[in-house]
Design a protein around this nucleic acid. Sequence first.
DNA 1: TCACATTACCTAATGCAACTAGGTATATCA
DNA 2: TGATATACCTAGTTGCATTAGGTAATGTGA
Lengths: 107, 107
Amino acid sequence: MISRELIAASTEPLVLSLLQRGENYGYAIAEKVRTFSKGEMEWTEGMLYPVLHRLERRGLLKSRWEAVNGERKRRYYSLTAKGRESLGKRRQEWLAVHETLTEAWGA
Amino acid sequence: MISRELIAASTEPLVLSLLQRGENYGYAIAEKVRTFSKGEMEWTEGMLYPVLHRLERRGLLKSRWEAVNGERKRRYYSLTAKGRESLGKRRQEWLAVHETLTEAWGA
DNA sequence: TCACATTACCTAATGCAACTAGGTATATCA
DNA sequence: TGATATACCTAGTTGCATTAGGTAATGTGA
């Protein structure tokens, strides 16, 4: 089980990374996280949707509704320019901390 | 600047790692973090002491006061068995998330 | 000797994010 | 018909960093 804090630290970079590969909708994003982490990370919907709403409110994502006939409507999210920029920053931050931890753990 | 969430995710593993190398006191721990991260991570005292108190309350650390004559008293912290165990777990969690992110970022 | 920086500890109030625990709605399959 | 999977949503709780203070002792430069 991944700690609450680690989840918090990785959600934004993960969502942004997954969406960089193309637009997607919430439910599918949660599934991707499961497969990418080989089942180690399990996102509940109760956390996923607030995250997406927050990122959109901050201008990192934009969304559009798509209704295929006879199917449940889906909200597709994609990266904005600001989102792409943020992804780069988050990635660098992560790597800086990763290096610090690696050093602290010892060679 | 490292995001609040990344700070939160890395504090516990970092404190535990630094103390695995031997007992130390709060102020010195904060300095070590600065040097280990090459100045990337800056811990305020307002966050450091609550963290140490929390970890001791949870039984991951134990502490003792030491007063050298004429010097400000220092509280020295060290790992408990539970703390060492926790460090191993945290490390594994971190590495699992790191792999997931690395994969999501692409080869 | 006076002021300031540094060392060293502490805590109350605020804000933000995951988590808990619900809810709605559609389609498929037994 | 009932269960399962898909697909979306939110209010209330809890935990943590952050902000913004505080105390006390020592060393240093004017």
